[in-house]
Simulated scan of single mutants.
Amino acid sequence: MAKIKVRWPIYHILIGGLAIVMLYPILWMIMSSFKESRLVFVTAQQLLPHPWEWGNYAKGWEGVAGYSFGVFIKNSLVIVVVATVGAVLSSSLVAFGFARNKFVGHGLWFGIMMMTLMLPSDVVLVPQYIIYTKLGWLDSIRPIVIPQFFGVPFFIFLMLQFIRTIPAELDEAATIDGCGKFRLYYKIILPLIRPAMATAAIFSFYWRWEDLLGPVLYLNSPSKYTVSMGLKMFLDSESVSNWGPMFAMSVLSLMPVMLIFFLFQKQIVDGISTSGLKG
């Protein structure tokens, strides 16, 4: 008991110290959003602003290039919602096909799908750009969202593992009752894999919200810029970078991510932990 009493405070001190180290950059960014732009890095070692610049949020919301920051947030939300819906639904359908259907070349196609997980995304940037250019998709969100409707390998694997935990007897009972393949997927499998779908949706939200490379490659009009591109424009829109407003809008851009995490952290843990089981 004495050892437990000694270890308990030491454990909390270590965990608390690590939490402070991990959260300090976010705290520094929040405090920097209340500093004058010229003082952000001059007083970098000073956490609290002096003086407090409360106008950074108003200046940042005014945006750049004649567009308010609300336009960038709206554009990001459209991309995130459409891409997430496409990624989750298409991945669940492909995972159902691999998990419940045996077809010619099943192992080969599954192996090819898994190999794409190990393929660096940078390798396919140039071929994809050439294809989208010939299709006339540049300066639109189509190169960013349409590929998501053909399945995401990581999500397919995640949902596949989850489907394998569902007893095959349910499929047999539904088939006897007259369910076809698609109805089996829609009525039986889809409701049962909601935890895995929620996990995939959250990850897709994070990836699309913070994506900078895709919008930089394919979006040319400022009216179509996303949050990440809007933040970048604070650095090169003028000869002097607007650090204060940029940090202020960075704090605002973190709000949806933090909100999603705190609301759905249970689904993230449950989806990943349960997907690792095979029954």
Rank of each mutant, 00 (worst) to 15 (best):
Q267A: 11
S204W: 01
L184V: 01
A83W: 09
A87R: 08
M197A: 04
V152E: 13
A99R: 08
Y11G: 11
A201G: 02
I189F: 05
F262T: 07
T199C: 05
W209H: 09
P167N: 04
H50P: 02
I13C: 14
F205Q: 00
G276E: 12
P167W: 00
P167H: 02
K181G: 12
V126K: 02
F103R: 09
F262I: 11
V124M: 10
A196T: 02
V123T: 06
F34M: 04
S92P: 09
I202A: 04
M113I: 09
G276A: 12
A87C: 07
F72H: 12
K266E: 13
N101I: 14
G66H: 00
A196E: 05
M246G: 09
M229C: 06
F155K: 03
S140F: 04
N242M: 11
W109S: 11
P147W: 09
I30N: 00
W8L: 14
R164L: 11
Y225F: 15
I189R: 02
P153R: 10
G70W: 11
W54K: 10
I130M: 12
L263T: 12
L192Q: 14
W28E: 03
A196P: 00
V227S: 00
T116N: 03
S91G: 01
F103W: 14
V6S: 13
G97V: 10
R100H: 09
L119C: 08
H106C: 08
P195E: 04
M31D: 06
Q267Y: 13
L77T: 13
G55W: 08
I260M: 15
L138N: 10
P191H: 03
L18M: 15
V251M: 09
Y11M: 14
M246I: 07
H106F: 03
I10L: 15
P143E: 12
I15G: 00
V82C: 10
V269K: 08
G86M: 07
Y132Q: 08
P153Y: 05
A95Y: 10
L219S: 07
L108M: 12
S275P: 09
L277T: 05
V240Q: 11
K5C: 10
M233Y: 07
L170W: 02
I130Q: 08
V40Q: 01
L23N: 07
V78P: 03
H12G: 04
L27I: 15
W109P: 06
V71K: 10
K102C: 07
V104D: 06
L108T: 15
R100W: 13
K102P: 05
R194G: 00
G105D: 11
I112N: 08
F261D: 01
I189C: 03
E169R: 04
L263N: 02
G136S: 09
L14S: 09
W52Y: 14
K74R: 15
T43I: 00
A196F: 04
G271I: 03
